[in-house]
Amino acid sequence: MRLISRLNPAEGVGDFWAYIRRPQPYRLPILALSFLMTGSLLFWVVQERYYMPPERPEITYITTFAPGRTDAEIAASNRANQERQDALAAERAEREELRREIYRSLGRATGMDVDRIEREAAEEQAREEAAEAARRAALVGDSVAEDSQ
């Protein structure tokens, strides 16, 4: 019983009404500002926003080859592509050899022993390749191909 008497809203409303009825010069602007702030906060919190899910994208597949190619056409295009790749590799090797020759002539002009430098570079590359092969062999261990022999 005692808890219910503490939660009686009539006493609170009565105190509020008595406070509002007192003559004060700024009571109405303060009351309006209070209602405006509370109302705007409630309006902002209660608003519901619903975002539509995005449309599913339309997928267009781009094919570079005709869908009905025969095996012979595929093999012919593979051969043509391989010939083109071989020609590009040969051209790249020619350019690299030309660049090496330019560096050799520059080295000879400056008094460097170009043959010794090339020999040392080749030995270093051979050592690196052997170390890489040994590392791969250690990682792989005995392969299935070696077991079948």
Rank of each mutant, 00 (worst) to 15 (best):
E123N: 15
R22S: 10
E132N: 14
A75K: 01
P29V: 01
L106G: 03
A87F: 13
A89C: 03
F16Q: 02
R108M: 10
Q85D: 13
A145M: 06
F65Y: 04
D147M: 12
S34E: 07
E132H: 07
E118A: 01
D142G: 07
N8D: 15
W44R: 05
A72E: 02
E120A: 09
A18G: 04
E129F: 05
D142Q: 13
D86C: 05
E55D: 14
T38Y: 02
P9S: 06
E124A: 15
L139E: 13
R95N: 10
R119C: 05
R27Q: 10
S34H: 10
E11R: 08
D115T: 14
A76M: 04
E129G: 04
R127W: 14
E55A: 12
G14K: 11
L7M: 11
A133D: 13
D142M: 03
P57T: 04
P67I: 02
I30A: 12
I74A: 04
I117K: 07
L139T: 12
F35E: 09
R135F: 09
I59M: 05
E83A: 10
N78Y: 07
R79P: 02
A130E: 05
V45K: 06
R21E: 13
P67Q: 11
R21I: 09
S148M: 06
T64K: 09
E101T: 03
G68S: 14
L139V: 11
E128P: 01
A126M: 15
L42N: 04
Y19I: 06
L98G: 06
I30W: 05
Y51I: 08
R22K: 10
E48F: 03
R104V: 00
W17E: 14
A75F: 01
R6H: 05
D15Y: 02
S5L: 14
R84D: 11
Q24A: 12
R100K: 08
I4F: 12
Y19K: 06
M112T: 08
D113T: 09
S77E: 14
V13H: 10
L106D: 07
E48C: 05
L106E: 11
P54R: 09
A72G: 02
E101K: 05
V114A: 02
E73W: 01
R136V: 12
P54N: 04
S143N: 04
D71N: 08
V13Y: 06
E94W: 10
A109S: 15
E146R: 07
R22V: 08
I59Q: 04
R22I: 01
T70I: 01
N81Y: 12
Q24S: 11
P54G: 04
G68R: 08
I102V: 04
L88P: 01
E83G: 05
T38S: 12
P29R: 01
Y26G: 13
R104H: 01
V46R: 03
V144T: 11
A76W: 02
V140W: 08
R84T: 09
A131R: 13
L3C: 12
A80W: 03
E94M: 15
S34Q: 06
A130Y: 10
F43S: 09
D86S: 11
Y19C: 02
F16H: 02
E123K: 15
S5A: 11
R100C: 01
